[in-house]
């Protein structure tokens, strides 16, 4: 009997190590594959890969497009989300606050394709064209819950005594929040914003029916179509041409490196991440 229990114990240990390994292994295989398949493409095409248009074998317009979308969506989404984060921090007990927090939780995991289709309906169709604006708006909607939650969390992490000190000097809610507390929390807030931007910069589904894609010429206006790296990859994979596939691998490697390069330093300076 004792032997049977011991066997179960050993099997269990194997299961644990094996399971944990399997859970993480795909990441390594993905990185490995991307390097093997993407590096040769980038090397053989050189700087043209980063500056050229698609028919020149480059993803330049997509890179610029991603930056434009990241910038625009931040402009739209961050201020609103920041204010919402302040609200739920400052007034946590009201019914409104509970509702909002629930709503934010829902939005954190919301299917991003649905956001894209929604924005298509309210912006693209009336405007009659795909646009950077529409793409940015869709990304902003996705970004907002992250920024709000990180802002509120960063504010909550401020030791209570600073709040007391500020009020005891006769300062009101507004001055306390903006002149004392937010500056103390600014690192945490900023980090959260960066993570949110990193996340939306890698999104594809929200851009499918909003941004339009633009890869032969560089972006020329916010009410004109724009491309993005993830969107480009998606389009290229579905093409029958193997050159396109090669470009897709190269672009994926670029996307991976940028993502890891931004995500890891930020993640290291945070204690935990909202998923």
């Amino acid at each position: 009997m004792l032997n049977f229990r011991k066997i179960k114990d050993k099997l269990f240990l194997t299961f644990i190590f094996f399971g944990a390994f399997i859970a993480l292994f795909p990441l390594f295989h993905i990185i490995f594959t991307l390097i093997i398949k993407g590096m040769p493409v980038i090397i053989s095409r050189g700087t043209m890969f980063f500056t050229g248009t698609l028919s020149q074998g480059g993803i330049g317009p997509a890179i610029v497009g991603t930056f434009i979308l990241a910038f625009l969506s931040s402009l739209i989404g961050i201020p609103i989300a920041f204010l919402v984060g302040l609200y739920i921090y400052e007034y946590p007990d009201s019914k409104v606050s509970e509702f909002v927090r629930g709503l934010l939780q829902i939005m954190l995991e919301f299917p991003t394709i649905l956001v894209g289709v929604f924005v298509m309906d309210i912006l693209v169709i009336p405007m009659g064209t795909y646009s950077a604006l529409a793409g940015a708006f869709a990304l902003a909607i996705i970004m907002m819950p992250y920024v709000s939650v990180y802002t509120a969390e960063a504010m909550r992490n401020i030791p209570y005594t600073y709040r007391e000190a500020s009020f005891s000097l006769g300062l009101n809610c507004f001055k306390t929040a903006f002149r004392i507390l937010v500056p103390i929390a600014k690192r945490g807030i900023f980090t959260g914003i960066l993570i949110a931007i990193a996340k939306v910069a890698g999104e594809t589904a929200p851009l499918l029916f909003t941004a339009g894609g633009l890869y032969e010429i560089y972006p020329h206006g916010i009410s004109a179509p724009v491309g993005a790296i993830p969107l480009l990859i998606y389009t290229l994979i579905q093409s029958p041409s193997s050159t396109d596939h090669a470009t897709a691998w190269g672009a994926s490697l670029v996307l991976l490196l940028v993502f890891i390069g931004v995500f890891i330093p930020i993640r290291l300076s945070l204690k935990e991440v909202k998923l």
Partner: peptide, 12 residues
């Protein structure tokens, strides 16, 4: 005015 248990000059 009030002075607190933890010396709390604003760190920033």
């Amino acid at each position: 005015g009030m002075v607190f248990q933890y010396p709390n000059p604003f760190p920033h």
